[in-house]
Simulated assay, not measured.
Amino acid sequence: MKKIFLACMILLVFIACKEEAKTSVKEVKETITETVVEPVDSIVEVEIKEPVKKSARQLKEELTAKGFKTFDYVDKKTNDTILMQQYFMAFLKRGPIRGQNEEETADLQKEHLAHLAKMYELGYADISGPFGDDGDIRGITIYNVPTQKMADSLANSDPMVKAGRLEIEMHPWWAAKGFPLR
């Protein structure tokens, strides 16, 4: 009888502990659910400001103060005044030193693209790209700087030019300020 009583007591303790554990897990789950489900009321409003559109006159004054050459052109159809700005177009031509091995050429190309990206990020170059043929003129970069001396300096700091794989031919070029490519 003692064995049956002892077995029943062990069984009851075991069942009681099991129920207590279930309750504890259930309580923990409810606590976690309550914490996760709470709504978040923190919406951050961001004010997006439209860029201030400057008149051609204001833009011309700013550019002139920075040393850029400009002139006004009046469109006969619309009677609009168009501000023309001098840029510098660098023709990247096939250079005299082209004996680099494949690995050196690949490294130079990475450095060349990084240089062009940096010129764009700093605002010195507005557009760059290769030509689609295999001619002597390999590509162009249009520099948005006030002087040809500055454009020459930036173009000649290109790793491909320094290595002699490319050489630069620079020309002043006029374009309407702010007109996009189509």
Rank of each mutant, 00 (worst) to 15 (best):
F91L: 13
F91W: 02
F91M: 11
L92E: 05
L92T: 03
L92C: 05
L92H: 06
R94F: 02
R94K: 14
R94D: 06
R94C: 03
P96C: 02
P96I: 04
P96Q: 09
P96H: 05
I97Y: 06
I97K: 12
I97L: 09
R98K: 06
R98N: 05
R98M: 09
G99H: 10
Q100T: 09
Q100H: 13
N101P: 07
N101M: 08
N101L: 08
N101K: 12
N101R: 11
E102A: 14
E102D: 13
E103M: 08
E103R: 10
E104A: 15
E104L: 11
E104I: 10
E104W: 08
E104H: 04
E104G: 10
T105Q: 09
T105I: 03
T105W: 06
T105E: 06
T105R: 14
A106I: 07
A106W: 05
A106F: 11
D107N: 15
D107G: 12
Q109M: 11
K110A: 13
K110N: 13
E111F: 02
E111T: 07
E111Q: 15
H112S: 03
H112V: 04
H112I: 01
L113A: 12
L113Y: 07
L113N: 13
L113H: 06
A114K: 13
A114M: 07
H115A: 06
H115M: 04
H115D: 06
L116G: 06
L116N: 12
A117D: 13
A117G: 12
A117W: 01
M119D: 06
Y120G: 03
E121Y: 10
E121K: 15
E121L: 14
L122V: 12
L122Q: 14
L122I: 09
G123H: 03
G123E: 00
G123D: 00
Y124V: 00
Y124A: 12
Y124L: 08
Y124K: 15
A125K: 01
A125M: 04
A125D: 02
D126I: 15
D126R: 15
I127P: 01
I127A: 12
S128F: 11
S128T: 15
S128C: 13
G129R: 09
G129S: 10
P130C: 12
P130R: 15
P130Q: 13
F131T: 11
F131G: 04
F131W: 05
G132A: 13
G132W: 04
G132H: 05
D133I: 09
D133K: 07
D133W: 02
D133M: 09
D134P: 00
D134I: 11
D134Q: 11
D134G: 02
D134R: 10
G135N: 08
G135C: 04
G135Y: 02
G135D: 05
D136V: 07
D136N: 11
D136R: 08
D136F: 09
R138K: 14
R138Y: 00
G139T: 05
G139C: 01
G139V: 01
G139D: 02
G139L: 00
G139A: 03
G139W: 03
G139Y: 03
I140M: 05
I140N: 01
I140C: 00
T141W: 05
I142Y: 01
I142D: 00
I142F: 10
Y143E: 03
Y143H: 08
Y143I: 03
N144I: 02
N144T: 10
N144K: 14
